[in-house]
């Protein structure tokens, strides 16, 4: 398994870096989009508004959004394009079994994106003078968030296996994701409050905003919910993916037929 992880990291990294111009262009674009979003948030909040935790919370939301979006896109678009070019069938020929291989891929892709995000955050906090906190306990809600994110990624991957064309679904999904990550769930009351715990990633994003932008200590009870949420979505994602694999093998459609 370690070998597989190293191999996937290596493959992801090489494919990413082989054309450095693409990489740099990508970084510049993401950072400027981020900055643009940040500025427009500032603008909408109005000049007299006291910035501070609210704005930082927006930054955290955007950061998480790109991170999960990238993981999901990596897996779903990766599956789609590999099915068209033909390497996908070679991957499914692995005696390790496809779910394990794709899980290793997801981790490799996360590692790469996380490093990029750290760079981007560093640039952004430099430009905006934002003060984000990075206590080590951050890793926990991050983990629960990523697990739920992987769950969604595997569900999207399953769509790619079955429907072949996922760009449209992914386009719509982008906004759903934005809502999930930026929704001010802390302010939800009454019956919809329960959605805070049921929708994917919501309990984790709330925690991350608290810890990173508001400097609040981690609430362990809430983290318990967030963790359960992550585990549940990951499990559902893996099940759906396994089902999609069986269906694709039944339809003979792994190879882009």
């Amino acid at each position: 398994m370690i070998d597989l992880l190293i191999a996937e990291l290596k493959r992801t990294w090489i494919q990413f870096i082989r054309y450095p111009a693409e990489v740099i262009a990508g970084l510049v674009i993401i950072t400027s989009v981020f900055y643009g979003l940040f500025l427009s948030a500032q603008y909408m909040a109005g000049p007299n508004f006291a910035f501070g935790d609210r704005l930082d919370a927006v930054v955290v939301g955007y950061v998480l959004w790109t991170l999960t979006l990238y993981i999901i896109n990596d897996i779903a678009i990766g599956l789609q394009s590999e099915s068209q070019t033909g390497t996908l069938e070679q991957v499914f020929l692995s005696p390790l079994g496809a779910p394990r291989v794709f899980f290793a891929r997801a981790i490799a892709s996360l590692a790469l994106r996380l490093s990029l995000i750290v760079i981007i955050i560093a640039i952004l906090t430099g430009i905006t003078g934002s003060q984000l906190a990075f206590p080590p306990v951050l890793a926990l809600p991050m983990l629960s968030l990523v697990m739920a994110g992987y769950g969604l990624a595997f569900i999207m991957g399953a769509c790619a296996l079955i429907f072949k064309r996922v760009q449209q679904i992914l386009g719509v999904f982008q906004f759903v994701l934005l809502f999930l990550l930026a929704a001010p769930v802390e302010e939800w009351n009454g019956p919809i409050e329960i959605l805070r715990y049921l929708l994917p990633m919501l309990p984790s994003t709330g925690l991350l905003r608290d810890v990173m932008a508001r400097g609040i200590d981690l609430n362990w009870g809430d983290f318990g919910w967030a963790f359960l949420n992550g585990v549940a979505y990951l499990a559902v994602g893996l099940l759906v993916f396994a089902w999609a694999e069986r269906t694709a093998k039944h339809n003979g459609s792994l190879g882009g037929y």
Binding site: D3, L4, R11, T85, G86, T87, E89, Q90, L93, L96
Partner: peptide
């Protein structure tokens, strides 16, 4: 297996890298 009319390899990886990657995959 080498399947029909497909790319069976990663085009951005070198010969060596493909061999190593698929070796681990197998």
């Amino acid at each position: 297996a080498v399947l029909e009319g497909n790319r069976n390899l990663y085009w951005r990886l070198t010969a060596e890298e493909n061999l190593e990657y698929f070796g681990v995959l197998r």
